[in-house]
Amino acid sequence: MLEIPLGSKSGIESCMNSYITRRLLGMVPTLILISMIIFVVIQLPPGDIVTSTLDRMQAQGVEVSAEQIQNLRAQYNLDQPMVLQYLSWIGNFVTGDMGYSYLFSRPVNELVWERLGYTLLITVSALLFTWAVAVPAGVYSAVRQYSVGDYVLTTVMLMGLATPSFLLALVAMYIGYEWFGISIGGLFSPEYRDVPWSLARVGDFLSHLWIPMVVVGLGGTASTMRILRANLLDELNKPYVVTARAKGVKPIKLLIKYPLRIAINPFISTIGLLLPALISGEAIVSIVLGLPTTGPALIEALINQDMYLAGSFLMLLSILTVVGMLLSDLLLAWADPRIRYE
């Protein structure tokens, strides 16, 4: 009698499966649109990679013949119409060929993955940090609405929200240097920079990771906390909470099992909104702190009009966000039975 009947469990699974399928299919047009936007954006700067290459070569005194120029243009498909250029760019991208970065004189493939990995790591740990701070703070200020603690927390969080992340990074650098005597740039101490991975290197890495984590995470904490606070305030006096209270459930358990459990649901979907912000914050913080992630490379690529590199970074960061949003939607469907039954 007590085991869950087979029918209902596989029912949940099939609901979940069809939901995942629908969401995955919905992602395709989004990604296509995104790739078009990015292609347009990287085409915007006047001139292109060939003209800037030519400029450099001429500056070095190298004579270039018209034929060579023609060859170069053909090599980059620049002699073809825009639509074809887009198609060949995105086609190559999908098959894993991201082109060649003249800035680093290496295939883009070799450049992006490690940087993207660090970006992902910092972003995810910043997300976890945001949650670890925002959830308790949000719960506290909802339950003790209008208390001194509520005001203090809200104000501190608001300051976090109002401080540009690069300023926070600068302040972190200042504090680290003045108070702890450590230089905060980079993700590794000099002695670990170019050695293979070892336990000691991981430890060194973690001791550097927490600063970008805190700096990037702090910006999103305020909004996240406020969303949770508002959600929770909405739920606190809902009939189902009153019913449960009338049942004799003790306050702490009541709070966690009933209103918080529901308030978390829309909160989960805020990951989707938080991710673009976190990735943005990560980019600028990395530039300030000189971290080997996508941010500094992207800005260099942009300034030097290294279109393949910039486009790949933009595309990969966007995919990261879209996938993150998908994951947050799936998490939501898993957490809220009403959604997966829709």
């Binding site: 936007i37 990015i38 954006v41 990287i42 915007l44 700067p45």
Partner: peptide, 18 residues
């Protein structure tokens, strides 16, 4: 939906670099 799922700052960077 598309615009909201784009990482804003990198795109701002790309556009203003242009």
């Amino acid at each position: 939906e598309v615009l909201q799922s784009l990482p804003t700052l990198p795109l701002w960077m790309a556009l203003s670099a242009a």
